[in-house]
Design a protein around this nucleic acid. Structure first.
Length: 300
DNA sequence: AATGTCTCTGACGTCTTCGG
DNA sequence: CCGAAGACGTCAGAGACATT
């Protein structure tokens, strides 16, 4: 079997363009991982605690928590939590959600958001979605999709708050047609599959047959940062996962994640994370010693 | 003590990106 | 489309630590 640290964690997840609903037990939570969907979590029986963006986040029982999965995250504590609903929403679905731009922008800029109201959706509903997502019925799958959209609308309308605050930068209007959403999704997919190669903005634009200037503007308009910034962010996120989960040398990690020069890696890492790679490794290890529970690593 | 390895920084010329 | 700004690649080397 391929060592999961040898490849991008983004490739671990199959069919990640499909909206999926999982129902996990406390002992069945993956280690430090990341993916390109927006993750929605609902703990039942007790709160759960996460490390997201190197900060501890507690999601209270029955509340709906959501964040963009490209940020490395892991569950560190599952106090009395009997089960947790995990809904993975592909970015193309997420961008098309009929909710206010502020909520979408917060998620796209790395915030962790929770519903202020408890028990908006119960265990039985998540279980039904889980069963629907596994059935072969197109009709049931459609219904599940529509109900999850309604869930997101309810979160947006009934109230939400940020658990992990990030600088939102300029807020961008995300109201756009389906074709633009497909372009953004295609660019994100291409980048997530090739970020560790020497790809340029032109390659991304060429892949979806758009003029580079148009692709760059569209991306910035929607995401709020440039294509180049996103490529770098993907590399650094991969590096963070490898630094936290493996003992591979920093030189090795910098090359694996697509940096051609150590100096560039250190520069980008410090700019995005604020500390050096080794400091980051030591910090995550010291956190792990105090906080981390022995959780099985995701092998799928 | 000498040597090797790893981490990290800086200088400098070239290239790419992005805003106007 | 163009020019300025920023990012990049390459190279050199310092400092800490481990090994011989």
């Amino acid at each position: 079997m391929t060592d999961p640290t040898e490849i991008s964690p983004l490739t671990w997840q199959q069919a990640d363009e499909i909206l999926s609903v999982e129902f996990r037990q406390p002992g069945d939570m993956p280690g430090y991982h990341w993916h390109r969907q927006v993750e929605v979590n609902i703990p039942f029986g007790g709160p759960v605690r996460y490390l997201i963006n190197d900060q501890q986040i507690q999601l209270p029982e029955g509340h709906i928590g959501l964040f963009w999965g490209v940020i490395p995250h892991r569950l560190i504590e599952c106090e009395n939590c009997t089960q947790m609903g995990v809904i993975n929403i592909p970015l193309s679905h997420f961008l098309a959600l009929p909710v206010d731009d502020l909520l979408l922008n917060k998620i796209l800029h790395g915030s962790v958001v929770i519903s202020t109201t408890k028990d908006l959706f119960g265990h039985h509903e998540v279980l039904r979605w889980h069963n629907d997502s596994r059935s072969n019925s197109h009709g049931l799958y459609q219904l599940m999709q529509e109900e999850i959209v309604l869930m997101m609308k309810r979160v947006a309308v009934s109230g939400w708050q940020e658990l992990l605050h990030t600088e939102p930068g300029k807020l961008h209007s995300l109201r756009m047609n389906e074709r633009k959403i497909r372009y953004i999704q295609a660019m994100l997919s291409f980048i997530s599959e090739h970020y560790y190669e020497a790809i340029r903005v032109n390659d991304v634009a060429e892949q979806i047959q758009l003029h580079p200037n148009y692709a760059m503007n569209l991306f910035k308009q929607v995401m709020g940062y440039s294509i180049k910034d996103h490529i770098t962010m993907m590399k650094i996120n991969h590096a963070r996962a490898l630094l936290a989960e493996t003992n591979r040398s920093i030189l090795d990690i910098s090359l694996t994640t697509g940096f051609s020069a150590m100096s560039r890696f250190y520069e980008a890492f410090q700019k995005l994370v604020g500390i050096t790679p080794n400091q980051y490794r030591l910090t995550t290890r010291s956190n792990a010693g105090v906080l981390l529970l022995p959780i099985e690593k995701e092998t799928a």
